[in-house]
Amino acid sequence: MATKSIGRKPKMSPWDKSQLIWGWIFIAPTMLGLLILNFYPIVDTAIQSFYRTMPFNRGNVFVGFENYINMIADAEVWQSLINTFKYAIIEVPFSIAIALVLAVFLNRKIRFRSGYRTIFFLPMIAAPAAVAMVWRWLYNSQFSLINNAFGLHVDWISDPNIAWISVGIIGVWSILGYNMVLFLSGLQEIPGDYYEAADIDGANGFVQFFHITLPLLSRTIYFVLVTRVIGALQLFDLIYMIMDGTNPALPKTQSIVFLFYKYSFQNNQKGYGAAIVILLLAVTMIITLLQNLFQKKWVNQD
């Protein structure tokens, strides 16, 4: 339509008009959902972050930037942000690298292929809370399968130096199958001709992987990277289910969303909680923007 009209408002044919109306009708449910369930709460949270909230939100007091000023001086907030990054640094690269290798192998014709695919995807269909509960007992210092099977005495989830890695491992394990499925669908879009040609030229599997598979899969990898980084920054349920409030490792493991939950829902300080979550929003947006800038350097644009 834009090409037809240069400099003046396009006149709509009845067909275009009806297309437009039906287009809106079809996206209306999603749009309404987004506006009511996502957009409105974001705005509301942003507004709330400028208030000292009272019980049941009755008579909240406008305090300007007080919550933000307190937050900047609060070491716990920055420690939680660091904890969240530490988790992301384990979850994102490992879950992508391992899933990529798995996807390449499971894209070949091997026996029990769909069986393996199902096994790797299974953690994805289990509820995150259930996954966390099972791992909590796998890691338990007294009764765990891991400690007893190998005769270890490791405090997997209460030693501040280890707990963040333990949580990261669960993260990788849970998301592996999902990343793998996305990579599989990306792999299936790569035409077989390239590999045939490479075979004739005498390139081995290793060379093929780095010179054909990786470049042609880069757009899928970019998509997975962006969504996983955002997902990792939102870490909450694993920490909430696995660690109790008196866990000595909690200060070095709790994520920024966990801190938001603590202030908003346990301590009744919703204004401060809102400020914390706005910080997370800002951090997420900056990181995504940076990824968007740098993607031109490595993502295949054709």
């Binding site: 338990n140 007294q142 009764f143 405090d155 989830i157 209460s158 030693d159 109790d244 866990n247 000595p248």
Partner: peptide, 10 residues
């Protein structure tokens, strides 16, 4: 008592 890490987990 058991070590504090144990009691915090269980």
């Amino acid at each position: 008592c058991p070590p504090n890490t144990v009691m915090s987990e269980t």
